[in-house]
Nucleic acid binder design. Structure first.
Length: 205
DNA sequence: AAGTCTCC
DNA sequence: AGAT
């Protein structure tokens, strides 16, 4: 897939490519994700302290991200025991478009936000090589994304992410705290039934 | 604390 | 924004 990169919006070192993915490519990704969720159904991860996350998730690739009473980690199997399905080619195209120099991703974490789902501020730090970026793809309803600092506390800034936006968290921005404060229902027609899917592609090892 | 709550 |  060939994409024309315009200058991204920069926010605390994050690069946000607004509207990078055309509608037809978004639809292709959603269709491919149906195969992913058939093989690896969405689940509600349990936090280590006993409360389930409001976001439902699954993964594709060699590794998937899981959370339970034992903590956060990458696993080569879904909680039900099966290996994760491969990362769809249409989704890998987004990675190569914005991170052509990086290693290929080993995990595509699929986060589904229904109206009301949120994700608190956190770091992506379960990977072995922080020199490799994390690439995020937004599909469906708009989401209010918040970014903070490399340590907890301090000021934060927010930006609305829309369907087709692609964000790169790399370099100095790789370990910034970030999260999703809210979803704006009815702002996209991409997903029947509404909601938002966020894909985060990562190198794990 | 990838949640939740409280306080400003 | 900060405690936990």
């Amino acid at each position: 897939m060939v994409m024309q990169l315009s200058a991204p919006l920069e926010l605390r070192g994050l690069s946000i490519y607004k509207g990078l993915i055309p509608r037809d490519a978004q639809e292709e990704m959603v269709e491919a994700l149906r195969d992913v969720t058939r093989a690896a159904p969405l689940f509600s991860p349990m936090t280590p302290y006993g409360k389930p996350m409001s976001v439902r998730m699954t993964s594709a690739g060699r590794f998937g991200w899981v959370s339970d009473r034992r903590g956060y980690r990458y696993s080569e199997t879904h909680p039900e025991g099966q290996p994760w399905p491969p990362i769809p080619a249409s989704i890998l195209g987004a990675w190569t478009a914005v991170a052509p120099e990086a290693r290929m991703p080993e995990c595509c974490l699929v986060n589904f936000y229904a109206a009301g789902a949120r994700m608190g501020l956190h770091q992506d730090r379960d990977e072995a090589d922080f020199s490799q970026p994390v690439v995020s793809v937004s599909l469906g309803d708009d989401a209010l994304y918040r970014v903070g600092n490399k340590t907890r506390g301090g000021s934060t800034e927010s930006v609305w992410l829309s369907s087709g936006d692609v964000m790169v968290m790399g370099g100095e921005a790789r370990l910034l705290y970030h999260g999703i404060d809210r979803i704006k229902p009815g702002t996209s027609t991409l997903l029947r039934g509404g909601g938002r899917i966020n894909l985060t592609l990562r190198v794990v090892t």
